[in-house]
Nucleic acid binder design. Structure first.
Lengths: 210, 210
DNA sequence: TGATTTTCTTGACAATTGTCCAGAGAAATC
DNA sequence: GATTTCTCTGGACAATTGTCAAGAAAATCA
C-alpha cells in the first residue's frame, strides 16, 4: 500500500513537473504578470482546467515552478569548480559559463529577476525566492572559495557580498542583452576578470607545507 | 499666444505631475502589475476617467511616472559628494545615505526594480528604464570618483562595474528588508565600507604638486 | 452675463482573468 | 467484464481590467 501510494504520488509529481516545465517556458517568455493560466495551459498539452487539478491556485503553481527551476541552477557551476586546476583557468571557465548562461537561458533568468522583484510585493512568493537566493549565494561562494584556494589567497569579502556583487553585474548584462546590446557579453567577461581578484586578499601561508 | 499656450501646457504638466505623484504612491505599494488605473485614480483626488484625458494609455502613464521619479533620484547623493572632505567621511556619509534611502524610500525602490525587470518583457518600458539606469550609473560614478580623489588614489573599476556592484548589494539589502530582515541595514553599511576601497588602486602621484 | 472651451465624472463596453464544476474519458481494481 | 477511482475537458461564473464616450461641471473668454 505504501508502495502503491508512493508510486501514485510519483505519477502526480511527474505530471506536476511536466506542467511546471511548460509553465516555465511561458513564464520566461511573458513574465509573471502576463502569463495567464490559460496561456500556460495552451503552451502545454493540456486544457486550462487541469491546472487546478494539480495546483490549488496560480500562486501555488508559480511557487512550484520556482522551486523546480532551482534544481537546474544549483549545479550550474559545479564543473567550473571541480575541473579547474588554476586560478586563471577557473576565472576563464567561470566567465565563459556566465556568458553561456546569458546566451542560452536568458528567458529563465529574466523570469528569476521578475519573480524576485514580485516577492517584494507578494508575500506568498517570498519564502521560495529567499530559499533560491540562498542557494545561489552558496553556489557562488563555492566558486569564489575555490578560486581563492587555487590562487593561494584568502577571500576578503563575505559570502553575501560576493554574491551581491556578481549578481549585480550579471543582472546588468542580462538587462543590456534584453536591450539588444550584444557587447554585454564581452563586457561581463572583463568585469568578472576584474572583480574576482579584488575579492582576494593577501597570500595565504599554508602552515602545513613549511 | 505663445505665452498662453505655454501657460496652458504648464498647467497640463502640473496636473500630469500631480497624477504621477499619486500614481507612484500606488505603484510603490502594489507594484506594476497589480496597480490598476482605477486603484491609482482612487488614491488620487480624481476619478478613473481622468487618466485617459492626460495620458493616452496605461503604459504612457507608467513611463511618465518613471521619468518623473528619476528627477528625485539624480541629486540624492550630491550632498555626499560636495560636503565630504575626507575619503572616510565620504564613505560614512554614503553608507548613511544608503541606509536612509532603504529606510524611507523602500517602496519607490522596489518599484524601480520591478519596472526594470518588466522592461525585459515589455519593450515600451525599455527606453525610459535604460535612461534612468544610465543616470543612476553616473550618479554612483560621481560618488566613486570623488571618493578616489579624496583618497588620492585611482579607480580601478569602470563606471558600469562600480554601478553594477553597488546596485547588487543595494538590491540585496532591499530584498532582505522586504523580508523583515532589519539587520540588512547594518550589513550594507559594512559591505559598502568593504567594497569601496576595493575599487581603488595604487596611490596617485599628483604631478602638478611635486 | 452668455458663449465657448477646457476639465472632469460617470457609466458602459468588450476582453481577460482566476476559479470552479459537472461530466466525459481513461485507468486501475476487483 | 463491471465497478470504482483517477484524470482531464470544456464551459460557465463573477470579478477585474483598459478603454472609450456622452455629458456634467468648471474655467475662460467675449
Amino acid at each position: 500500500m505504501t508502495a502503491l501510494t508512493t508510486r501514485a504520488a510519483d505519477k502526480v509529481d511527474a505530471r506536476r513537473n511536466q506542467l511546471a516545465e511548460s509553465a516555465l517556458k511561458t513564464l520566461g517568455e511573458l513574465g509573471y504578470a502576463r502569463a495567464s493560466l490559460r496561456e500556460i495551459a495552451t503552451n502545454s498539452e493540456f486544457s486550462h482546467g487541469v491546472v487546478h487539478y494539480y495546483f490549488r491556485d496560480k500562486i501555488e503553481l508559480i511557487v512550484y515552478c520556482v522551486r523546480y527551476y532551482k534544481a537546474r541552477c544549483v549545479t550550474r557551476y559545479d564543473a567550473v569548480v571541480s575541473e579547474s586546476t588554476t586560478a586563471d583557468g577557473l576565472l576563464d571557465a567561470f566567465a565563459a559559463k556566465l556568458v553561456e548562461t546569458l546566451h542560452e537561458e536568458a528567458p529563465m533568468h529574466r523570469l528569476w529577476y521578475d519573480l524576485r522583484a514580485q516577492s517584494m510585493f507578494e508575500e506568498q512568493l517570498r519564502e521560495a525566492v529567499t530559499m533560491i537566493d540562498r542557494t545561489l549565494e552558496e553556489m557562488i561562494w563555492r566558486v569564489v572559495t575555490r578560486y581563492a584556494e587555487l590562487a593561494g589567497r584568502e577571500v576578503v569579502a563575505t559570502s553575501d557580498t560576493a554574491y551581491g556583487v556578481l549578481d549585480g553585474v550579471f543582472q546588468q548584462a542580462l538587462l543590456a542583452l534584453a536591450g539588444g546590446e550584444a557587447a554585454a557579453l564581452d563586457r561581463i567577461t572583463g568585469q568578472v576578470r576584474a572583480l574576482m581578484p579584488l575579492l582576494l586578499g593577501a597570500r595565504v601561508v599554508d602552515s602545513a607545507a613549511s
